[in-house]
Write a protein that binds this DNA or RNA. Structure first.
Length: 490
RNA sequence: GGCCCCAUGGUCAAGCGGUUAAGACACCGCCCUUUCACGGCGGUAACGCGGGUUCGAGUCCCGCUGGGGUCACCA
């Protein structure tokens, strides 16, 4: 039994799409559960698409996610180089072999000729297929042209009859008529291979046992099988995975704004939550469990749990799952992660950040939600008196007008050194009790006066504790003033 | 359009010939409660359609419909 070796082979386009990350994750899991190797290979044969810094970005992101690769451009390995543009001579060698085998041929057709063909096809409303013009050149003719320096590409010589069948570990057996296969380009005129050639050569040379990739490659897989057969190479296990869609019919894409891992990560999503969520998008453990660490995933992952149909990315569920991960954080962990967001939201120096964290820990699903929840801390937002009206709390403008000053009174009695949650709680509830009114009738107006918002990440007592005596009394003062000029009753 | 693939609630999904068709998110209601959130309890909601095969089909086969992919000197 060969050691399992999988690879993730992204193009350096500058960002890591959620779907791509999932493919990487599956490849990683498949390798790790079999104690195999996970390899990173950079597919940069399209020099036009090269983006500066993109490879480093891929290294960083994979490491950040914990998808450590055993071999790759920056870690080395026995099968390098791991960047395709550095493997030029290797492809040349194998393309020559293929030509000698009679399985490929040089093609000297110009761009113009091809465009003409395409135009003609469009005109007659038939599908464009390369007419195999150069396939019939004699060896001598071809050699002569090659020698004379005419630019050329190398095309795969497809069988024109028969069928090609391949097995996919998730989709099963797939058969296509060879007649639908085109004499595709294997080597471009710039001397670099197309994906269609490079992936086969590299996967073989790197001893890849399981090829995990998106289902968009399903229809070109027969061509790859033909290549493996031409060389007499062992065909790897194919594991094609469905796509992740943004909404029915819409592929998740960079254009839509938030499809990349870093977008979520930078917004305050935890990497563990993102990985956990995408692992479940297209794979099921077959049980009810849905929280897994990377290690647990490696243990539990199975090809049989991979689903064939496309999955729609549900931001709401990711959000929920992220919230679950945040709640599972220890208080100290949460506090540390939240601090940068506090700094962003609050200028005042006198607020106790730990009090904030106690309030926010269960109220935060995504870290970047924090600033908005705290927008009342520095300055009291302007608000309308009808905020004092709350049916369930039995609070109205009238009751608020009556109880707010009393609350001000009992709070004012507290010595600054005793200003803490316990004492405030005692004072405020004591007031409601002595007045024989519902707690809410006292607490609601206080909460409103302190926050100026319909909802706040804490009640009257917590907000008073957070804001301090001076600010609390000042805000209540302001509220009383507002109420005094309000129309009779609402 | 040709070829290939897919098809269980709004979403992710379990199911692999016999089930009251799980579970989760979202949504709704109730409870807890100083608002909200957390937490607890409950609810609405699905096998695309039509033929077969079978004693019996969400599960197997065929057709249809719908969706996706692919037909580049991109991967």
């Amino acid at each position: 039994m060969n050691k399992v070796r999988t690879r993730f082979a992204p193009s350096p386009t500058g960002y890591l799409h959620i779907g791509g990350l999932r493919t990487a994750l599956y490849a990683y899991l498949l390798a790790k559960q079999a104690s195999g190797d996970f390899i990173l290979r950079i597919e940069d044969t399209d020099q036009d698409r090269y983006v500066e810094g993109a490879t480093e970005f891929i290294y960083r992101t994979l490491r950040l996610c914990g998808l450590d690769y055993d071999e790759g451009p920056d870690v080395g390995g026995d099968y390098g180089p791991y960047i395709q543009s550095e493997r030029r001579s290797i492809y040349r060698e194998y393309i020559d072999k293929l030509i000698n085998l009679g399985e490929a041929y040089p093609c000297f057709c110009t761009k113009e000729r091809l465009d003409e063909l395409r135009a003609k096809a469009a005109e007659s409303k038939t599908a464009y297929v390369y007419d195999r013009h150069c396939r019939h050149l004699s060896k001598e003719e071809a050699a002569e042209k090659m020698a004379s320096g005419i630019p050329y590409v190398v095309r795969q010589k497809m069988p024109t009859t028969g069928q090609t069948t391949f097995d996919d570990a998730v989709y099963g057996q797939i058969t296509v008529d060879n007649s639908v296969l085109e004499d595709g380009i294997l080597l471009k005129s710039d001397g670099l291979p197309t994906y269609n050639f490079a992936n086969v050569v590299d996967d073989h040379l790197m001893n890849i046992t399981h090829v995990i990739r998106g289902s968009e490659y399903l229809s070109s897989t027969p061509k790859y099988n033909l290549l493996y057969q031409a060389f007499g190479w062992e065909i790897p296990t194919y594991v094609h995975v469905s796509q992740i869609m943004r909404s029915p019919g819409k592929k998740l894409s960079k254009r839509d704004g938030d499809a990349s891992f870093s977008d979520f990560y930078n917004k305050g999503y935890l990497k563990e939550a993102i990985l956990n969520y995408i692992a479940l998008l297209g794979w099921s453990p077959g049980t009810d469990e849905e929280f897994f660490t990377l290690e647990e995933l490696a243990e539990r992952f199975s090809i049989s749990g991979i689903s064939k149909s496309d999955a729609i990315f549900d931001p709401a569920k990711l959000r929920w799952m992220n919230g679950e991960y945040i709640r599972k954080l220890s208080f100290a962990e949460f506090h540390e992660m939240a601090i940068p967001y506090y700094k962003q939201a609050i200028q005042r120096e006198d607020v106790n950040l730990e009090v904030l964290s106690r309030m926010l820990h269960t109220r935060t699903e995504v870290l970047s939600d924090i600033p908005e929840q705290l927008d009342f801390v520095d300055t009291l937002p302007d608000y309308n008196v009808d905020l004092y009206v709350h049916k369930k709390m039995k609070s109205s403008v009238d009751t608020s007008r009556e109880y707010l000053p009393q609350a001000w009174g009992v709070l004012g009695e507290i010595e600054p050194k005793d200003w803490n949650e316990e004492v405030i709680h005692e004072k405020l509830l004591g007031l409601a009790n002595s007045l024989s009114v519902k707690n809410g009738q006292v607490l609601w107006p206080v909460r409103v006066a302190l926050s100026g918002k319909p909802v706040s990440p804490g009640g009257a007592i917590e907000l008073a504790t957070l804001l301090g005596k001076e600010e609390t009394l000042a805000r209540i003062d302001f509220g009383m003033e507002k109420l005094s000029v309000a129309p009779a009753s609402i």
